[in-house]
């Protein structure tokens, strides 16, 4: 199973746990699984369209990816707020 890592408020919403293992073929699959396992995360990473929010970055094994990036069981996905704001 691939690993999804969250931190900050997302970790709190995900039951206080940063690492979550799920099966899926894409980043979006994993994030949907995360939402199913922890409904409080719903709407925080993916918007209603199913898109990763504009100022959230996802990295697959350290390389920036997106919702449609393919993953396999050995991969880990970090979900981080982007370096933006003012």
């Amino acid at each position: 199973m691939a690993l999804v890592r969250v931190r900050g408020p997302l970790k709190q919403l995900a039951g206080g746990c940063s690492d979550h293992a799920f099966e899926g073929a894409t980043v979006a699959d994993l994030l949907h699984e995360l939402e199913r396992a922890h409904p409080a995360v719903g709407g925080w990473i993916l918007d209603e369209r199913g898109l990763v929010r504009r100022h959230i970055n996802v990295f697959v094994n350290g390389e920036q990816g997106g919702a449609e990036t393919a993953v396999d069981a050995a991969d880990h996905v970090d979900v981080l707020p982007a370096i933006s704001g003012g």
């Binding site: 408020p9 990473i45 369209r49 929010r53 707020p81």
Partner: peptide, 28 residues
Amino acid sequence: AFYGPKLWYADGPTGEWQQAEGVALPEG
């Protein structure tokens, strides 16, 4: 800016804020 718009409610400004449900457009 990161996690999108939310509504929250609490009994007072220093109280425990809870996220309101249903504040979203239809999915998909």
